[in-house]
């Protein structure tokens, strides 16, 4: 009963399809701007130049308040930096080490194996420094939000003037991509916030797209190899499916 099989599969797929946006949309009332991303689709890849620029935006703009706790300096090799460059970048950070022989903690320049240090010692300090609002860690932010990349891009570009009927309390900011529209994070990107060595545009859109690329990488650093293996696996299994179908027909031919 082939009909049954098809019906089941489509129905369950439909159920998942219907349910997942419903599950993840949360506020559901905001419209996201779709960016152009190199990492989507079966042949998706990371644009290394964009990742490097995005890392620069992260360092100059975001890192003041937000950590990236699952990224170590050594991981920056994915961005196209060589060993010497990674050592130089690492050395710009100070990390706490210890205890030393006297039992004291001490600061030393970071090494490639060190995690990029968080701006705050702990969550309480982070909250206290930001009017009680906790700035989320950015390592996984692109996967921890529905439609992550488009959401981040839209959020960074979503700081517009509040409509006249909207009351914006002190310490809050109006953002048209944020669920509920009131966000504690002040506008981070205005354009020309950083200066790019490669002369890429530093418009708000350019900066936002670059940092979004970087954050997608930090959330899913294995994306490229995943898709590469995926294409091979799907190719192999498609052939396997066709062959097993004909092998089945051959075996069953005995019966008729």
């Amino acid at each position: 009963m082939r009909k049954f099989l098809i019906a089941s599969v489509t129905a369950i797929a439909a159920m998942i399809g219907l349910a997942s946006p419903a599950m993840s949309a949360g506020g559901g009332d905001v419209k996201l701007q779709a960016g152009e991303w190199s990492f989507t689709g079966p042949f998706g890849y990371f644009d290394k130049a964009a990742l490097q620029r995005g890392f620069q935006v992260y360092r100059d703009v975001c890192a003041g308040c937000q950590g990236i706790d699952y990224i170590a300096c050594r991981n920056l090799a994915d961005l196209g930096y060589n060993e010497a460059e990674i050592k130089a970048i690492a050395a710009e950070y100070e990390v706490m080490d210890g205890p030393d022989d006297e039992g004291e903690m001490f600061m030393r320049p970071a090494r490639p194996a060190d995690i990029i240090p968080n701006p705050y010692r702990n969550d309480n300090e982070a909250r206290a420094s930001n009017n009680g609002a906790m700035p989320p860690d950015l390592s996984l932010i692109a996967k921890a939000r529905a439609n992550g990349p488009d959401y981040l891009y839209s959020l960074l570009l979503g700081y517009v003037d509040a409509p006249t009927n909207q009351d914006v309390p002190d310490g809050m900011h109006y953002n048209n991509a944020y669920s509920g529209n009131l966000i504690a994070m002040p506008q981070p990107i205005y354009g020309d916030d950083v200066e790019y060595a490669d002369g890429s545009p530093t418009t708000p859109e350019g900066l936002s797209a670059d940092v979004t690329n970087f954050l997608m990488w930090s959330a899913e650093p294995k994306l490229e190899v995943r898709k590469r293996i995926g294409v091979a696996a799907v190719f192999f299994l498609s052939i396997f499916l066709v062959m097993s179908y004909f092998a089945k027909r051959r075996v069953w031919a005995d019966l008729h």
Binding site: P42, V234, L237, F240, L241, K248, V251
Partner: peptide, 22 residues
């Protein structure tokens, strides 16, 4: 052999999910 066809289909769909929509 008939199960093999089903297994191939299952693995193909699983691979699509794992590699492209994990």
């Amino acid at each position: 052999m008939k199960d093999m066809v089903g297994i191939a289909m299952f693995l193909l769909l699983l691979a699509v999910a794992v590699f492209f929509f994990p």
